[in-house]
């Protein structure tokens, strides 16, 4: 996994609540057996019409907005557990998603893939949206070490939560599987006392 420290970037605003993972990547695009190339199908049905032509009114098709930070409405990533949703967002080029609320499975999947979910207050989220509306080049600074997110133009800032274990993993580019493998003796010892009712 790539290390994550600090990102300064302009943003792509998606002011929609309850964005489910079926919208992030529809089920018919989950047929691949590798994790590459999902960015093409990110928000497929919002981004392209039935003839595969870009829908002009969708934000990813609007050249005014670009950057490594996706800013979205409350309850982002709800629904299906598909990690493909995270792969699609990452593959498209985003490294941070900002929202006032994330669905649990999505949040775990994102952290496991090096995509940082930054949960901010409703008020700060509204502030970010209004700043982007005023100036599409509005930049955010996301500092994982200090757990802060800052609107560079105004200097307004908020702290965000991140599980200390996952923070360490992201900062160092560590991997959960390596960590679990290092616990093999403990796991085997646990198994000796485990409750099992055989057939």
């Amino acid at each position: 996994m790539e290390k994550f420290t600090t990102i300064i970037s302009s943003c792509v605003p998606l002011n929609v609540e309850n964005v489910d993972t079926d919208q992030i990547v529809p089920a018919r695009f989950l047929k691949a057996t590798s994790r590459e190339g999902f960015g093409e199908n990110l928000f497929r049905d919002w981004r392209y019409d039935a003839n595969n032509q870009p829908k002009k009114d969708f934000v990813l098709n609007n050249p005014t907005y670009s950057g490594k930070i996706l800013v979205a409405g409350k309850n982002f990533g709800c629904g299906s557990s598909r990690e493909h949703a995270v792969w699609a967002i990452y593959d498209y080029g985003f490294r941070v998603v900002v929202s006032s609320f994330f669905a649990d499975i999505f949040k775990n999947n994102a952290l496991n893939c090096g995509l940082l979910p930054v949960q901010v207050s409703e008020a700060f989220l509204a502030k970010i949206f209004s700043e982007i509306e005023k100036d599409p080049r509005t930049e955010l600074k996301v500092d994982l070490e200090n757990q802060t997110i800052t609107l560079l133009a105004t200097g307004e800032s908020e702290n965000f939560d991140v599980n200390p274990y996952k923070k360490e993993c992201l900062l160092k580019g560590y991997d959960d599987v390596d960590y679990l493998l290092s616990l093999k003796d403990k796991i085997e010892a646990y198994e000796k006392g485990r409750i099992v009712f055989s057939v």
Partner: peptide, 12 residues
């Protein structure tokens, strides 16, 4: 769980 977590369960 997500696919990264499936990998964790398969491995450990």
């Amino acid at each position: 769980i997500g696919t990264s977590e499936i990998e964790m369960v398969l491995a450990s």
